[in-house]
Structure formats: structure tokens, C-alpha cells
Amino acid sequence: MPRKLTTTRDDHLIAWLTALAVTIHIAESALPSPLPGIKPGLANVVTIAVLIRYGWRMAAWVTLLRVLVSSLLLGSFLSPTFVLSLSGALCSALVLALTYIVAQRLPGAGLSALGYSVLAALAHMAGQFAVAYALFIPHPALLHLLPVLMSAAVIFGAVSGIIAQAMLTKAGA
């Protein structure tokens, strides 16, 4: 007798949100990038919204699934892009989870979408950079790019954060 695969309500939610994030991710990857390594990272909007609405576990799921599914759809699974993307996503999910947990315990440490988004973007870039440096090109000259990359991360993180904030305000009304 075939066993029935049971899914929870959360699973459905994760699937839907992941689908949304994947859509944004793929749409964005079709856009030309001003400089390799710098992307708006608008899929981050979904992660942040999910984090604030449903907590860090859900956000982590959505982020990691997004990277996995997008890479499969784009055909970049296990390629250097995927490795960089995954390391960024892992790093950002980790930082978000930690911050979220601390913010829950510590009164007054509550972050809005803006703060989370900037943190996530910085963590994403830092993680990606660290892996690029360690695995692909371990040369000090690469460090010269770091300030620019991190600046872009702060800017796009803030933009994503503001968008996420707007979304939440609308949805939460």
C-alpha cells in the first residue's frame, strides 16, 4: 500500500512563498548586472517578510529552498554561482536567525524589516565573498573589491527592507 505523503499547512505556506521568491530570483537573474557580483537581491524581500511574519525557521526554509530551486531551474545547480549563492544564503539565514532569536528575548532589541534586510544583505555578501576568496581566488587583491561590494549590499539591503516594510504594512492592515 503506498504511503500517503502528508503535508502540513506550513509546508504549503513554505511552498507558496518559495515559489514567489524563486520567481523574483529568476526574474532578477535575467536583468543585466552593473557589476558582476552585485545584484539587487530583491528575493530578500520575501525572506524578510516571512521572517517577521512567521519566524526564523520558516524564513530559513524559504531562503535555502529558493537558492536550490532557482539553481535547478536556471541550470546552475552545483556551479560556482550556486556555491556562492548558497554560501551567501546560509550566512544570511544564520545571521537572521540569531538576530531574530536575540530580538525575541531582549526587549528593546526589536528590528524592523529595514534592519533585518540590511543585516541579511551584509551577511549574504560577506558569506559569498569569504567563500569566493577561500575557494576560488585566494588573493589579497580581491580584498580591494570588498568595500564596493559591501556598500552595494547596504544600499540594496535598505531598499529591499523598505519594500518588505511596505508589503507588511499593506498585508498586515
Binding site: 528590528l111 529595514l114 534592519g115 543585516l119 551584509l122 559591501m150 547596504v154 539591503g157 535598505a158 516594510q165
Partner: peptide
């Protein structure tokens, strides 16, 4: 309504300092 918190400000200032 834009609801940035004090912690947000801390994060932003820290981010700029990092840059």
C-alpha cells in the same frame, strides 16, 4: 507608517561604520 526602531538605527550606524 514607517516603523524603523532604535535597533534599526544601531544596525545602520554599525553598517556605515563597517563600510
Amino acid at each position: 507608517k514607517f516603523s524603523a526602531t532604535r535597533a534599526d538605527a544601531v544596525v545602520l550606524v554599525a553598517a556605515l561604520a563597517l563600510l
